[in-house]
């Protein structure tokens, strides 16, 4: 873009300025404010916010609940990522393959709708599915001779339940993005390859996948970040609203909200956010590296 570099520069800055202004006001400022609070002790109501240095972080390192939340969240996020991306890629490829068929719309809608349904009633339906005594899942397992499992009560199984619920919601989003990505690949690429005698698998492997790389990067970053931010899913599955409480899978956001609004320790919750930010930044950076390296190799 040599010839247009001059006008391009002006355009880029003018176009970006309003967006960045909004960004600075509604995202950067409140986030910076939050990060600043991580070095302070604040209970929301007090006008005093004494500076306490890294004391919040020191305390976090020995906080059993925080460490448990960190462990659970990491496990859940990676599991959701590991399930969602391959499943979504396969589903998107299959649906894309059947795009001419009338059923494609149904498939796409059926898979996407879990992403938008109100979480609480949906999670209550899932509580039934997982119910230890007579839930359909245990009934199904019983037919294969597997003993009934206390899904929502066992510390390990409860984490699996949260993973399943999150993956159920995440996969529709990923499928939608991937299908749009596949539809946006120029048909000419396929035609040329087909003339060279490539079969469907080869088309998928050597054209679809590399062309999708930026979109795949997007989907995996978003899935990982969103999974690190889950909270309501874990809460609803364990909630005692029906008098049938499950094992509470403590996740980071839940712990932060409790610290902010129940324990009134905003600075402490902000310190948790800083740690979350650091972890996810590193992971996101790694994903960018991974995708860039591969494209360089291919």
């Amino acid at each position: 873009m040599r010839s247009g570099a001059r006008s391009g520069l002006g355009f880029a800055l003018v176009a970006l300025a309003p967006v960045l202004t909004i960004y600075a006001t509604v995202r950067i400022y409140p986030i910076a404010e939050t990060l600043r609070l991580s070095l302070h002790n604040w209970n929301i109501i007090s006008p005093r916010k004494p500076f306490i240095g890294l004391a919040n972080f020191e305390e976090l390192m020995g906080d059993a609940l925080f460490l448990e939340a960190l462990r659970n969240t990491t496990i859940i996020a990676f599991a959701v990522l590991a399930i969602t991306i391959p499943a979504a890629l396969a589903l998107a490829a299959l649906i894309n393959h059947r795009y001419g068929s009338r059923l494609a719309g149904f498939y796409e809608t059926a898979i996407f709708i879990p992403h938008v349904v109100s979480l609480v009633p949906a999670a209550l339906a899932w509580k039934w599915v997982f119910d230890a005594k007579l839930g359909p899942l245990n009934w199904l397992l019983g037919r294969f001779g597997v003993a009934a499992q206390p899904w929502l009560y066992d510390p390990v199984l409860a984490v699996i339940c949260v993973i399943v619920l999150c993956a159920w919601q995440a996969v529709g989003y990923a499928v939608l993005i991937l299908i749009v990505g596949m539809r946006n690949i120029s048909p000419s690429l396929y035609e040329a390859a087909r003339l060279d005698g490539a079969n469907s698998w080869q088309l998928f492997r050597f054209i679809t996948t590399p062309q999708l790389k930026p979109v795949l990067l997007y989907v995996s970053v978003v899935t990982l970040i969103s999974s690190f931010n889950i909270y309501a899913q874990a809460f609803v599955l364990a909630s005692d609203s029906q008098g049938a409480p499950g094992k509470l899978v403590r996740v980071l956001v839940l712990d932060m909200l409790e610290n902010s609004f129940r324990n009134y320790r905003v600075g402490y919750a902000a310190a948790e956010a800083v740690i979350l930010l650091a972890i996810v930044l590193v992971l996101t950076g790694a994903q960018f590296r991974l995708f860039r390296d591969r494209s360089a190799a291919s």
Binding site: K133, P150, L152, Q242, G243, A244, P245, K247
Partner: peptide
């Protein structure tokens, strides 16, 4: 046992 229904619902 923890996996039994509990509280008001069980009652």
């Amino acid at each position: 046992s923890p996996e039994m229904k509990a509280d008001a619902e069980a009652f």
